[in-house]
């Protein structure tokens, strides 16, 4: 099955939705209620970014919108804000994807790190402008750093478990 065939793309779209819903559900489980300390990574964002860089057609705009808006509503976040930031960052990654395919993984990681940091800071400043109660700065930064640090793991899992390989420039040009 070619990486560009319609069947392949739709299979992976469904897979993305399914994995996202599972992640949302897992996060909602009442398991570690009292755990404070280092907040866990935002796996949804990582999954979206890793897959966009690998095969952009697999994560279309509509799917991103649906998944993240649902997450915003369920996770008690301001609805729409994190979705906007994710969509903006994913668009910028989509546009810069070609340079990433030619350079080693570190460049991709750096781009994702910049995107996530930007999202977190923009999120914080938007909340500040809207006069919403802010979370502690240290926790927010720790959250961003943990998220960035987990990115390679998400990439490895998408590559070897889900078989999502990176499309080279030649294949992209062929379409």
């Amino acid at each position: 099955m070619s990486a560009l065939s319609a069947r392949h793309v739709w299979t992976y779209r469904a897979l993305f939705m399914a994995v996202s819903l599972v992640l949302i559900t897992l996060k909602l489980l009442p398991l570690n209620l009292a755990s404070s300390g280092v907040p866990g990574p935002d796996l949804l964002v990582l999954l979206a970014f890793a897959w966009i860089v690998r095969q952009p057609a697999v994560v279309p705009l509509g799917v991103l919108l649906a998944v993240f808006l649902l997450a915003d509503f369920l996770f008690m976040r301001p609805p729409g804000l994190w979705t906007v930031l994710t969509i903006l960052a994913s668009e910028s990654l989509r546009r810069r994807r070609l340079t990433m395919t030619e350079f080693p993984f570190l460049v991709e990681w750096g781009a994702v790190a910049v995107a996530i940091m930007g999202m977190v800071l923009l999120n914080r400043s938007a909340l500040w402008i809207l006069l919403v109660d802010l979370d502690p700065l240290g926790l927010t930064l720790a959250h961003a750093i943990v998220t960035i640090a987990i990115y390679p793991v998400v990439v490895v899992i998408s590559k070897y478990l889900f078989g999502l390989r990176k499309l080279g420039p030649a294949e992209l040009e062929a379409l």
Partner: peptide, 28 residues
């Protein structure tokens, strides 16, 4: 269009909080 829609959703949440929170409760 999408970004404008989402931003207005955030603003709506800030301005008319009870209504959006009711929507949230319905979704949950």
């Amino acid at each position: 269009v999408l970004i404008l829609f989402l931003l207005s959703l955030v603003l709506l949440w800030r301005i008319d909080n009870p209504r959006v929170e009711r929507i949230r409760a319905a979704i949950v």
